[in-house]
Amino acid sequence: MANNARLIQEITTFLATKSLTPNTTWLTTNLATLKPDIHLQGAKQLIYIRLLNTSLQSTIQITPSSIFPQDILNGNITSRLLKGPIPVQVMDIEDIGKSRWSQLEAIEADERGETTRGQEIVRVVRDEEDAERDQSATQTSSPSSGPHKLLLQDAKGLRVYGFELSTVTGINMNIHIGCKLVLRDVSVARGVILLEPKSVTVAGGKIEELHQTWKAGRKENLKRMANAGSSTQGG
């Protein structure tokens, strides 16, 4: 056990390279569950993976720079820069480049096993002319190309929307709920975080039960949002 302090030191340094600073309680409890004979490299990886797959609220050391500022949601601030690094987790994600209805149709086609057969069962076959005729309706079912809108949560549990200003590798509709991102020198405009490759690192991970709930409710959610959109439409 004399080694414990050194182990904590090693792991903390390792996690710092990922811009993640765990709180001591979480780290010590977790180290206690490790097999005594585990070698250092294995311990680092194991702790890292556990951290990615656990809610930030119980893992991260809260300091003023590792969480969102209190007034982040203030809509009057047109532009500000957060230095960070701020670890956040994805609580929700939407592809706002496509209508919800078309996404719902794509999921249903997929459930029927029809999109997996490639070219041969193309249900929406369009000729050039047809495509020109109704460009306003985006009914195609290409893979998620975004941009995406995410609901991000910091270690204190504050939730803020993020918008993918330019394509960030790793952000797509296959991302898991609970996935960790690290934000650094990130712009915030009127309470919305603007995500760009230079300011976002996708660390990975998921929170299993949140992800399952989200996945199970996705169709209902899309349906609800599509209907909400059409009813506020008024005229």
Partner: peptide
Amino acid sequence: VRGHLFDRMAVVL
């Protein structure tokens, strides 16, 4: 080039 987006907030920004 983005065509159109299905989120008003994003477009306003």
